[in-house]
């Protein structure tokens, strides 16, 4: 959870990228991901210009670069695993390298997006881009109650550990299972009660079953410029290796 908290903290910054509309940033990240995904796996070096673009964006964001690079490395095991397999099997090292590089670069782009965009703004942007209101609202309440419910679960676990400090034989697997499933059931019930309370609060404040969203701030000329520029830069970075040799 630490990773997401850190991103959340970064998102409150004030760089050029922070000030852009969430929709502009989201769309250019999607373009970036498509560019990464379409580089031929046989030529991992073709990723270099795109990686340079990412570096530029990272510099513009004024986020602690090293920390972002390190934190995002948690995504590496998956592509490294499959990269290794293909290397061992076919001796195809460039495919393996491409797999790892593309995954890492893609994850970095998403991490950067979240580091310069507060999640509530991004969700509002999603709504404005046409994602159904119900889904956005579920996302919002999930985010809102995530920490609360997780904290509750951790407190319950701590309480359970305190109660049987040494009293319960560690081997007694059956009763440990019993305890864990009981705790989850209680947590399930608590979540139900929490949802009912929230629903009451919504009704009491005039909710009648249809969600209305606050419009996100207008899409300004600056956002259009950014979108056009980034699309152009991504296309060029993607094309360059094709033309150069």
């Amino acid at each position: 959870m630490g990773h997401s908290l850190r991103l959340d903290e970064w998102a409150r910054g004030a760089s050029v990228l922070h000030r852009l509309d969430a929709r502009a940033k989201l769309i250019s990240v999607l373009l970036f991901l498509i560019a990464v995904s379409t580089t031929p796996p046989a030529a991992p070096l073709a990723l270099l210009p795109i990686a340079a673009l990412f570096a530029l964006a990272l510099a513009l964001s004024a986020l602690p670069a090293m920390e972002l690079l390190l934190r995002t490395a948690i995504v590496l095991p998956f592509p490294v695993f499959f990269g290794l397999i293909s290397w061992l099997q076919n001796g195809n090292s460039s495919f393996a390298a491409a797999l790892v590089a593309r995954s890492y670069l893609s994850a970095l782009a998403v991490a950067l997006l979240m580091g310069v965009t507060p999640l509530p703004e991004l969700l509002r942007g999603l709504r404005a881009l046409g994602v159904p209101a119900v889904l956005v609202m579920v996302l919002q309440s999930l985010v809102r109650y995530l920490q609360l419910v997780v904290d509750h679960a951790l407190r319950m676990r701590r309480a359970a550990l305190c109660r049987d400090a040494g009293a319960l034989p560690r081997r007694n697997r059956q009763s440990l299972w019993h305890r864990a499933s009981g705790a989850l059931a209680v947590l399930f019930g608590r979540s139900y009660a929490r949802a009912e309370g929230v629903h009451h609060a919504m009704l009491a404040r005039g909710f009648r079953g249809d969600f209305v969203s606050l419009h996100p701030a207008a899409f300004t000329a600056r956002d259009w410029r950014f979108l056009a520029l980034s699309a152009l830069a991504i296309a060029l970075a993607r094309l360059a290796p094709q033309v150069a040799p």
Partner: peptide
Amino acid sequence: VPLLGVMGA
């Protein structure tokens, strides 16, 4: 809706 969100949590 709140139920789905809280259940996600």
